[in-house]
Amino acid sequence: MTSDVKSAERTRHGHLRRPGPEPAAGGRKWHESAYVRIGVLALIGLASWQIASQYTPDYIIPPLADVGNSMREILTTSNGLSNLSATLVRVALGLASAFAVGVVLGLATGANKTAAGYILPVVRFIQGIPSLSWVVIAVIWFQGVELRVWFVIILVTLPGFALQTDDSYRAIPAELRDMARSFRPSKWSMFRDVTLPGITPGLFTAWKVNLGLGIRMVLVAELVGASTGVGNALLTAQQLFNMAAVVAWTLTLAVCMLILQGISALIENYALRYRPLNHR
């Protein structure tokens, strides 16, 4: 009897009620699913957009069909794809370069007080300079489009990588280092087995922040200093008052961003699989 009582639950009036069958799908009702909620919100947004487009000029809120056509054009024409890929390649190259330099600087400052004394003030100074200033400087200094964009993205994202690496390096517990040192490892082994895994969570954080920042900065740089890329395509669309193209490019880039963030999250979950689930 006791086990029956335990398994039952009391109603508001104190009567015992036997538990019913487990709800399907992990105990959640269908309308509590995040996917359903996102779908509902998207439908409401699209419907509102379509209704609003009936009462406003196309250059304010274009019809959904026009936006769809523009997106199809982006994804199916060589011009659209080349602009998209040009931007994504610039982001990738810029972030990879900033990552490489930033990690080296961060490791140097984390490991060496003298290096930290010289490098960190410079990095913090660079971080304090408005991003748009770098765009203007790049346009004045460099003639080559790629060099301009590369320069801007490096200067804007490098401080994040360097400072995060520095912080992560310092956050590695001294106890772990002492433990490793007690076995007298080689410097390379110490780096590969203690330092690198120790700074990895911080590197993922830096990537997540810099991915969005990098894409935004490349767009701005392309707007003012490039003849190809999404930024340039947006500028052309703006000059033609083609709002459908502006929305289509923006949505395309946002989707690319979501895909990249998803890939990053997958890699992060795999790399940090040792952590308890609530710490990932």
Partner: peptide, 14 residues
């Protein structure tokens, strides 16, 4: 020489 510390000092990623 090997050392056993007060806390286990295991590498959390291993």
């Amino acid at each position: 020489v090997a050392v056993v510390f007060q806390d286990a000092r295991l590498l959390p990623w291993r």
